[in-house]
Design a protein around this nucleic acid. Structure first.
Lengths: 228, 228
DNA sequence: TGCAAGAAAATTGTATCCAATTGACGAGAT
DNA sequence: ATCTCGTCAATTGGATACAATTTTCTTGCA
């Protein structure tokens, strides 16, 4: 039997993906009516999903004005990366100490899937790059840590979508492999160092671009996944 | 003019306080109707507040069953403390590097207010002990870090409410002072060490107790703060 | 007495409806 | 031409109504 999920969860997931994949651009407005219409649900559901997205820092809501895709400032971006470095350092510390037996297999399988889209700078490569870090966090077995890492990784994706021109995923994939090796060697210091460089690299650039578009036209590409 | 806040925020805040101060005990049921009635608002509001509380890990909701005050397992508790240690280590690292000029004054003022309730093991002392750590985090100027620390501190309060018999706040206050001194001396290592000991101390004990009570009777003590 | 099946009550999931706030637009005065 | 003020459309904040699901209580039977 298929696991029972609530409509709010579904809408939340779809909106999140749409934001991460840059279909919904930062600063774009998210009227409850429009979104609900597209997904075939009422405003109530959309509202709940937006509340959750706000808690995750992916959207901001202004009183009586509605919800917008978050536009992290450079200052905010620095803060997020600062926290992310601390969290991922802890992830490495834990993994060096205790990584599950199947851990390396999963990690290497993921890197292979990253390599399979090497060179393409599309949404898929962004998502995969992020998921590598999420996978690392999940391997710690610490659900709380995993959740926080997941959040900051997503927000970093949003930031990079705003400020970075290209994500040079080639470099990223190589560093992912190096991190795996360092962990396997039990060298936490080296793994952390690579991770810092890895994060510093993506955080280093600061150029901006914006491209407005219609909300409806975008969401129509996501709505079909909802079995209404 | 009084700052405009939404009803959802108000209910969210009151419920949070009620949980932290142990008025609402872990595992206790939170029917939307009952809560809404007590606060004089509709289920819609309560629902939104509960969604936010769930995201903060203070309540868990089971599909079609409703919301309950979270009952962190020992495993979950360990995970939370693990993350908390990592986050607070980062807080110290940052503060040693850059603490605002008024920082020490605020911290010492807070310790004084903690000392003023020394010996009492009531809700107030629990709240103040937690707020010291929240204040530390806020002084970093990093809103993201501050938010995460705030969350884990609250969840730790809940855990201690469940598993610890007494909080021996005397010890805690002394260690708070020592942490301030270490930061002032620029000794991050020592401050982190004290913090670890501090957290390890409160996390070390593991005894359990439960006391059921009526939801209505408890909320009536909080509801009067809502200007209906 | 104990157990199982079904009906009734309670509670959540979702949709719709009304009120309040905000932002935009335009007319008139300076 | 610009600034101000008032009206109006659009959208959210909140409440109520209905549907679906779970839990509990009752009742019949072994």
């Amino acid at each position: 039997m298929t696991e029972k999920t609530t409509l709010t969860d579904a809408v939340h997931t779809l909106l999140k993906r749409a934001i991460i994949e840059q279909a919904l651009k930062p600063g774009m407005r998210l009227p409850e009516d429009t979104v609900g219409e597209q997904f075939g649900v009422s405003r109530t559901i959309v509202r709940h999903a937006l509340v959750r997205l706000e808690n995750e820092g992916l959207v901001v809501t202004r009183r009586n004005r509605g919800a917008f895709v978050a536009e992290p400032s450079l200052e905010e971006a620095k803060q997020i990366f600062e926290v992310r470095r601390a969290l991922e350092a802890e992830v490495i510390r834990i993994l060096v100490e205790r990584i599950p037996s199947s851990g390396f297999d999963q990690l290497e399988a993921h890197v292979r899937s990253e390599e399979s889209v090497r060179g393409k700078d599309g949404p898929v490569s962004i998502r995969l790059a992020g998921e590598f870090h999420t996978l690392l966090a999940e391997l710690t077995g610490n659900a709380v840590l995993s959740r926080y890492v997941g959040e900051v990784v997503l927000r970093c994706s949003l930031i990079m979508a705003m400020y970075a021109k290209s994500h040079s995923s080639d470099c990223a994939v190589d560093e992912h492999s190096q991190i795996i090796q360092a962990i396997r060697a039990g060298d936490a210091a080296r793994a952390t160092q690579i991770m810092d460089h890895h994060l510093g690299a993506v955080a280093g650039r600061a150029e901006l671009e914006q491209k407005p578009d219609s909300v409806s036209s975008i969401l129509s590409r996501y709505g079909k996944e909802l079995a209404t």
